[in-house]
């Protein structure tokens, strides 16, 4: 490695949008025929780390770009009851497919390429098998209903931020610009608990992350801020009233 590659570019941060999460479907009788699936397993699922944008006509959420240009390895730590609970994935796609019957927390450890000079990053994802509900309370519908509702998607968007990257790492990153998120909605919205209102919009097919989601969330935040500010104004007026009253009472107490 040449020496000038080890120079940090100051005052600059560069990020890469990624998504992590899982997709789960109910096992059908045909699925069971082929392999040696334990009889108590009800779902097959895939947990993955992918780029945020979806490739056109793909049947998965996200994954338009190959992330191996900055990710060296992704380690998924499954529930201890699985054989080889720690799965190292060194090649894209960074994902693990399994069958199971229960939801649990998966630890995802992302190791960056050596040029990055960064420590590994650890994320947590709650494996989601059962359909989303408005309340967020886990509710397990009977298999027939669940089957009708189709695969369950649970994905979190996030951005990996690199501060003051090394020059050669920056070069690598800029050589692979991420596919921008689409600005129009063509597919369902990925459901997220922070936005329960999107439940209806998340139905009917493979969801896709879009710019619109960011804008929609910004609007919700702005709206909430306005309401809070109005409330604050109201309470301050109440406070002023109260303090006036208090002042009068004090005067009366002192006078009497």
């Amino acid at each position: 490695m040449s020496n000038d590659g080890k120079v940090r570019v100051r005052g600059l941060s560069i990020f890469r949008p990624i998504i992590y999460g899982n997709t789960a479907t109910l096992l059908t009788t045909e699925d069971r025929k082929g392999g040696n699936i334990p009889p108590d397993h009800t779902h097959k699922w895939t947990v993955a780390v992918r780029s945020a944008a979806s490739a056109p006509d793909s049947d998965i959420v996200g994954g338009a770009d190959d992330l191996s240009y900055f990710i060296k390895r992704v380690t998924f730590k499954l529930h201890d009851t699985y054989t080889n609970a720690t799965r190292n994935i060194d090649k894209p796609p960074f994902e693990v497919s399994e069958t199971g019957w229960g939801e649990f927390e998966i630890q995802i450890r992302i190791l960056f390429i050596t040029e990055a000079g960064e420590k590994p990053m650890v994320l947590y994802h709650h494996l989601k098998l059962h359909p989303w509900t408005v309340t967020g309370e886990p509710e397990i519908p009977p298999p027939e209903v669940a089957l009708k509702m189709g695969p369950v998607h649970s994905w979190q968007y996030d951005e990996v931020v690199f501060n003051d990257p090394f020059q050669n790492f920056l070069n690598i990153l800029t050589a692979h610009p991420p596919t921008p998120l689409p600005t129009v909605k063509k597919r369902p919205v990925p459901f997220h608990l922070a936005n329960p209102g999107s439940l209806e919009a998340s139905r009917g097919g493979i969801p896709e992350f879009t710019r619109l989601m960011e804008k929609e969330e910004a609007a919700r935040l702005e709206d909430a801020k306005k309401k809070v500010a109005a409330e604050q104004e109201r309470w301050r007026n109440i406070l002023i009233e109260k303090e006036k009253e208090l002042e009068q009472l004090r005067r009366r107490v002192n006078n009497s």
Binding site: E159, L193, A194, E214, E217, L221, K227
Partner: peptide, 16 residues
């Protein structure tokens, strides 16, 4: 009450 979760965002971009 306003439908916002204080610890998580759907799209945690810089602006959001």
């Amino acid at each position: 009450e306003l439908g916002i979760q204080h610890n998580r965002l759907v799209m945690p971009t810089k602006d959001n």
